[in-house]
């Protein structure tokens, strides 16, 4: 049996809102370590990999592995019914055909209970090896979101160039071009404002902005985004959770 209690419903709300436009049907695999999701979008360009570690929960028990096949659009509708600050408990039997969500308002005795029917989802699981990346950058997630949104007004593609002392984001379109250059900086008072670059090789990679527009929906999950890039392979965009992560793997575009 699964019983996982979130101190605040807002975390699961944010997670679901962050991935529901990338993937619709996915298996939430629950184990003693927490909850994991791996799902690929319909075009097979973007992969979502989620780990909500058991330490995120104020109470967590899962005696044996349980798979919850969830339609995220329906899940999002139910999860919006709860308040952000409510306790949220997920409950499922060992071989469930539904999952129960219990919201408890901390300021009153109100308890709301919803159940979502589960589905058999035949998901292919992709094996992702740990890779050595050419470059790893860490920067404020909100800045990355703004840069991508700004440049998406010009082009469908985002070019990322990384050298030892700069990160350059570029977009070239029919109406004009744009670029934003960032330099590494350490902010001691506000570490979340820092920008770091680790470089093994200089990077020049291009990605579809429509996918990045979905990735940056994870911005509210973490102050910083970690981007790991190698030339001509999928890049990893990661928002760290208190225990766990939301990762997106995005296949690059190649210049003809």
């Amino acid at each position: 049996m699964l019983e996982g209690k979130f101190e605040e419903a807002s975390l699961l709300k944010k997670v679901v809102e962050s991935i529901k436009d990338s993937v619709q049907l996915c298996n939430f695999v629950c184990s003693e370590h927490g909850i994991t999701v791996q799902a690929v979008d319909d075009s097979r360009v973007l992969l979502v990999s989620l780990l909500i570690g058991n330490e995120v929960f104020s109470d967590y028990r899962c005696d044996r592995n349980i798979t919850l096949g969830v339609d995220l659009k329906s899940f999002a509708k139910i999860i919006r019914c709860g308040g952000n600050d409510d306790y949220l408990t997920l409950i499922a039997e060992d071989s469930p055909d539904s999952v129960t969500l219990v919201f408890e308002d901390k300021n009153s005795d109100r308890i709301s209970e919803y159940s979502l029917k589960l589905m058999e989802i035949d998901n292919e699981f992709l094996k992702i090896d740990d890779m050595d990346y050419d470059s790893v950058i860490k920067m404020p997630s909100i800045d990355f979101q703004k840069i991508c949104r700004d440049l998406s007004t010009l082009s469908e593609s985002l070019q990322i160039l990384i050298t030892k002392d700069s990160i350059k984001f570029m977009a070239e379109g029919e109406t004009g071009n744009g670029s934003v250059i960032l330099k590494p900086r350490t902010d001691i008072d506000k570490p979340e404002q820092s920008i770091t670059v680790k470089l093994n090789n200089a990077v020049n990679s291009t990605f579809g902005l429509k996918y990045i527009a979905d990735i940056v929906k994870g911005t509210s999950l973490s102050n910083q985004i970690v981007i790991k890039i190698s030339n001509r392979t999928p890049a990893l965009f990661e928002y760290k959770l208190q225990s766990g992560y939301l990762r997106f793997y995005l296949a690059p575009k190649f210049e003809d």
Partner: peptide, 14 residues
């Protein structure tokens, strides 16, 4: 112009 690749070329089924 640029061509979008897919993850299938990089990651194999488990």
């Amino acid at each position: 112009t640029s061509t979008q690749t897919t993850l299938s070329s990089f990651f194999k089924p488990f």
